[in-house]
Amino acid sequence: MNKYPIIQLDHIIKRYFVGKPNELEILHGLNLKIYPGEFVAIVGESGSGKSTLMNIIGALDRPTEGEYILDDIPISKVKDTEISHIRCKKIGFIFQTFNLIGKLSAIKNVQLPMLYAGVSKKESLKRSKELLELVGMKDRMKHQPNELSGGQKQRVAIARAISNNPTLLLADEPTGALDSSTSRSIMDLFHKLHQEKQMSIVLITHSQELAKETERIITLKDGQIISDCKGEGYHEHLG
């Protein structure tokens, strides 16, 4: 295993309403390291703090205390004006609700993050086609989201998430809106990306069954990590 973590959280505390009588502490001094190429699940009941932790890992929110280092970048110290650029380059997001742009075709949804990142129109179009083929959407490239099934929308969302070759793929309940057979195909796609592209994937889920398929299961309860164990998908990384 590569000894340098891609994600390092040191004594992360997250409070809301800081300094007020109703101050609420959600995360209580979390320490966590995730290494390149790992497929990790973060699980927990509603209210466990996993959504708050996901927002911090995704650089969508900042900890009240502690340090977060993403791929050698001290996120806790980065200026607000630079955060969106880092997210665009380093993190691919996949959401339960897909978050596709309804008026754009599948291929244009995938192309958009690359255009924002400064990739040329020609190169971004070429890569969009390759990615949609990779996720099994070769015949649906010109379809708009309302012409696609839930599983197809999620495949487009995955292609979009990996379009800028992110360091980290962060998936928040990616099968939550899908039926069991479609969920199975999406998980198979995650395994394919992990194995063939050695992608670092963090899966946020309430499902123990899905979590078991990953290499490592981190369980949260009341804002603390109560277990960190191997999943059934575990295998040694060389590096």
Rank of each mutant, 00 (worst) to 15 (best):
N55H: 14
L24N: 15
S48H: 06
I34C: 11
K50F: 10
E67W: 00
R87A: 13
L134I: 08
K129E: 15
E67K: 13
L134S: 05
H28I: 05
D80L: 11
A41E: 07
K77P: 06
L115M: 08
R87M: 12
I73M: 02
S51M: 07
H143W: 08
S149G: 13
R62G: 00
A41P: 03
T64Q: 07
G136K: 09
G136S: 10
G118N: 09
M137R: 02
G136H: 09
L60K: 01
P145D: 08
D10T: 15
I73G: 01
A59G: 07
K103A: 12
K50C: 10
I57H: 03
C88D: 13
F98N: 03
S48P: 07
S128I: 03
K50T: 10
G66E: 06
I75A: 07
G44E: 04
S48L: 07
L24A: 12
P21Y: 11
G136F: 11
Y16G: 08
I83V: 15
L104C: 03
K77Q: 15
K108D: 15
L100V: 08
N31K: 13
P113C: 09
E67L: 10
I42Y: 01
K142G: 10
A117W: 08
V119E: 13
A117H: 13
T64N: 09
E130P: 04
I86G: 03
A106E: 06
I83N: 06
I91V: 12
D72I: 05
G29M: 11
P36Y: 01
S120M: 05
K138I: 12
L30A: 06
G19T: 04
H11S: 15
L132D: 00
M54P: 05
L104N: 04
I57G: 05
V119A: 12
I75P: 01
G47D: 10
G151C: 07
A106H: 02
G29C: 11
S120Y: 06
I86V: 12
M137S: 02
G151F: 01
Y68E: 06
V135H: 12
I69K: 10
K122T: 13
I94R: 09
Q96F: 11
H85S: 14
E147M: 15
D10C: 11
G37Y: 01
